[in-house]
Design a protein around this nucleic acid. Structure first.
Lengths: 176, 176
DNA sequence: TCAAGATGATAAGACGACTGACGAGTTGCG
DNA sequence: CGCAACTCGTCAGTCGTCTTATCATCTTGA
């Protein structure tokens, strides 16, 4: 809360901040965060479109995949495996449980935990979605050549790797 | 985009769905949508961190910038300028109005419209944030060399350009 | 001129995400 | 052993986003 003077940005020679020209819409469009928001929006949209028949979101799909590979994870394990918040995970897991795709049972010894496993139907679903998910991936990357797609993946990996510790929920391969 | 059958149709008969191996966590991590979600998460986080003092989100900042450049836009105009949903825009605009950063007045002739303009305080805020926003941009891109950052921007632009029509709210430079 | 259509705004509901807090349970250490 | 510290799950609250639906208003055309 530094700005309480009636005069907006009077030139301050002693200001350590370099002069920053006023933001314009064009500069907004050029911001990487802006592009990433749009790209994410598009990725969600393409996935939802391809998986329309299953009425499932990419987040829900991620949880099913994680449980298919590692049955018996608890919610925190799922959250860490996918880089999700604990609360978010709890909500989405509750959704999937309500739709009968997974079960939550008490852990044998640690009663704080709920052990998550796919139901038969959940296992069937995650298998059935695979082609649609693959279609979504290809469609999202369609505008890029294979080399460009590779380059994009590499650049994003650089970004993620360096900022991983920064985000509250770093990605964590469970069980290794 | 008419999928009402329980199973997704094969949209391209010439493009038969080959066998799709079962999804693993590793294959999930490799999905571009997954990386984009993480990258977006990080971008939001960095912006929020740098702008902590202003208690503002990147979306709110975008609306302020749009109104600074084009005072008198209506909500639909703001939504189109930023690629936001109309409903989302209405909610965030209501927030900003409640905090005193913008005003909503009746349009002179068209009473359906609400004309949006920054208040003095809103104008001061958007000026004051500029250095923090610039800091966030640089920090987000810090892991990349200038050339890599440029390449990433170009690749994302390719993606956005080709999928723009696909997303329900395409980006639309107002007034050009 | 009046009904039909287009457009702007809002409401309601669902989902994802984060923060902060809290209770129950577990574990480690003095 | 007993208490402190930690962990798991949950809840409440806030925010952003999209969908669908509805309402008010404006414009247009028969």
């Amino acid at each position: 809360m530094t700005a309480s003077s009636p005069f907006p940005p009077a030139p301050h020679p002693a200001d350590p901040e370099p002069r920053v020209p006023p933001a314009t819409l064009a500069s907004l469009y050029a911001r990487p965060g802006f592009k990433l928001r749009r790209a994410h929006q598009i990725a969600l949209s393409v996935f939802a479109d391809e998986c329309r028949a299953f009425e499932i979101t990419s987040t829900q799909y991620g949880i099913l995949v994680a449980l298919r590979e590692r049955p018996g994870l608890d919610q925190v394990g799922v959250a860490q495996a996918l880089g999700l918040d604990r609360s978010t995970t709890g909500m989405v897991v509750g959704l999937l449980e309500g739709r009968g795709f997974l079960r939550r049972d008490q852990h044998a010894t640690d009663r704080r935990r709920r052990v998550l496993t796919l139901t038969e139907e959940g296992a069937r679903l995650v298998e059935a979605i695979a082609p649609a998910a693959e279609r979504a991936r290809r469609r999202l990357l369609a505008p890029l050549s294979p080399e460009e797609a590779e380059a994009l993946a590499a650049l994003l990996d650089r970004l993620l790797g360096h900022h991983d510790a920064l985000v509250r929920v770093p990605l964590m391969r469970p069980g290794d």
